[in-house]
Amino acid sequence: MPVFHTKTIESILEPVAQQVSRLVILHEEAEDGNAMPDLEQPVKVVSNAVQNLIKVGKETINGSGDEILRQDMPTALIRVEKSSKLLEEASAMLKQDPYSGPARKKLIDGSGGILQATSALLLCFDESEVRKIIQECKRVLDYLAVAEVIETMEELVQFLRDLSPCLSKVTREVSAREKELTHQVHAEILVRCLEQVKTLAPILICSMKIYIHIIMQGGKGAEEAAENRNYLARRMSDEINEIIRVLQLTSYDEDQSE
């Protein structure tokens, strides 16, 4: 049984995966099998659904600026279409001979193929969505890198104006993503990192304020204040980098590393 790494993909494909597995088992146990019913109508419904997916898939490809999606999605669409053709062939063969063994094989290959190709397609789409979140995370990293050169209150205000909306977006999107993951360990890491980021953000801003006050008064301790600020910025960057790493993981990666 395939493992789906988001709850959305799981909810779409898990029921059909179970049905396909059952069909394979029934086929093996029944050996020569019973006469198959006329499958023309349900196969037609699948073919129409596949044509619609191909249309929507092509629109998604054309409307996306994501090069990886543009490269990977057509392959999945071709696989869905090929599997649909297998079902049409199986249906035609079964009309001639309801006991046909090769037709049953095509039926199993076709339905299994549709399941796998749809899974690949949804994964491709999902990975593209993850790349959008990662892009936002990288924007936060870019802003954090600027923290070291902020030396006036005006610059700090601008820094906050830039960072805040971006950080809010990352928080919102990573939080939603965490709820979507079927892999509990990955979800927990994201929650932990996000909590750290939320805790560190106001402390970092405070440390930047302290640094600015110290250098404005020309007082002692500027070096220590800068060190403290840099440490906090680095800690936040580390947490964001960990979020990026975990966002890219799938259950499959984890199983392989184990």
Binding site: Q19, V20, L23, A49, V56
Partner: peptide, 29 residues
């Protein structure tokens, strides 16, 4: 979003097809 809806429709259609095919086999077991 449209992709998800289209995938849902395919999953439901494939499920119905496989169920119909399974029903005939199940009678034998």
């Amino acid at each position: 979003e449209m992709i998800l809806e289209a995938a849902k429709t395919i999953a439901a259609a494939t499920s119905a097809l496989v169920k119909a095919a399974s029903a005939a086999q199940r009678e034998l077991i």
